[in-house]
Amino acid sequence: MNVIELAIRADAESAEALAAAFNEDAYGGAVIEQVVTPERGETLDAARPFTVRAFLLKDETLEEKRRAIERAVWALGMVRPVGELETRELAEQDYANEWKKFYQVLHVGARTVIKPSWLEYEARENEIVIELDPGMAFGTGLHPTTRLCLAMLEKYVTPGCEMLDVGTGSGILAIGAVKLGAKFVDARDIDPIAVETAQKNVATSGLAKSIHVARASVMVEANPQTFDLVTANIFADTIAELAPALLQHLKRAGVFIGSGILVERAYLVENAMREQKMKCIATAQEDDWLVMVYRHKTNDE
């Protein structure tokens, strides 16, 4: 069966929204690529340096799914700068190789390696290898926010610690944390597709006893379970909104890692964390994206 490739250029914030829209209907999920070197005959659009790419099966559902994606692109284009939606048809055998070329072995931080299952890689001393297949969930290592979070996990995961991962997506942070030494991770997501993808990746990694994946979010509770580490690779607005609940699950000496934060939206997280009496202890930036690390303030701070 042939497939239809969809591609559109956008800025960082729009790329995130477009990928979410594509994931509703795309076959195998969406890929966000950063265009560094344009293809021959193309030009680099500095205002829209990302390409969101996805595929639709050419079956009886094609037109309905394509119209849904076109409506989402039109709606976003009313408020954000996005390019034209480009399409082309590929034979099934071409598609099988086409989408794989966007995935490669990625080195993140000092010792984390992300590897698609079809590629061979021999780990070096002290490296951890996360094996993932791309699915319809956020978090393959192709996006800066995922890389930023993994690099911070290398610094803040301690042997035997317990972690809460909110918005787990593909489960990549949960898997990385356990491979770095965490004893247990409670991985949550409200998207059923993400939950299914994370469960598969956790099972493939042989870590089902150490990682519990559930369709859930966080809320303020009377007797919350607390963790040494809380991660939320979502959006700045959502982190700010959920801050009281997220931090209620953080032990007094624990560390919170938040990402998915555009530089221009960082003030939302800063304000919310200030209200919760949290202190920023580290930040890192890649392109327009930030990761922000917090701990509870001491009595004299």
Rank of each mutant, 00 (worst) to 15 (best):
K155E: 11
E92V: 08
T146H: 10
E86H: 07
I128F: 04
S117I: 05
T146K: 09
E98H: 14
G83T: 11
E154P: 03
T140E: 01
E86V: 12
N97I: 05
R124Y: 04
I172R: 05
D133M: 11
C149D: 04
E92D: 13
I114N: 02
G83H: 03
W99G: 01
L180A: 06
V82D: 00
C161P: 00
F138A: 06
T158H: 03
E122G: 07
R88V: 02
V129P: 07
P116H: 13
I175V: 14
I175T: 07
E122L: 14
K100W: 02
N97F: 10
R111E: 01
R147E: 05
M163L: 14
S170D: 02
V108L: 07
K155A: 07
E122I: 13
T145K: 00
I128R: 08
T146L: 10
F102E: 04
A177V: 08
T158M: 11
E162F: 00
L85T: 08
H107G: 01
L150A: 06
V113K: 14
G181F: 07
I175M: 13
Y95S: 00
E125S: 12
A110Y: 04
L180Y: 03
K155T: 11
L142G: 11
P134N: 09
G181P: 03
V178I: 15
Y103L: 07
A110E: 15
L119F: 01
A174D: 05
T112S: 15
V129E: 03
P116G: 08
R124F: 12
E120T: 15
G139D: 00
E127D: 12
I130W: 10
A137K: 13
L150K: 07
L153Q: 03
V105A: 12
E92N: 03
T158Y: 08
F102W: 15
G135Y: 03
R124D: 12
D165R: 10
T145L: 01
G167K: 06
P159A: 09
A177S: 09
A174F: 06
I175Y: 07
E154L: 06
Q104Y: 12
M163K: 02
E86P: 01
L150G: 04
G160P: 04
R147C: 05
M136R: 04
G83K: 10
R147I: 02
R124L: 14
S170K: 11
R88P: 01
P134V: 09
E127C: 13
L132K: 11
G135I: 01
M136Y: 00
I128Q: 13
V105E: 13
V113F: 01
L132C: 09
K100L: 08
L132A: 09
Y121R: 11
Y103V: 08
E131M: 06
E89G: 04
E125Q: 15
A96P: 00
P144W: 02
G109A: 05
G139H: 04
A174N: 10
V166F: 00
V157M: 00
G171W: 10
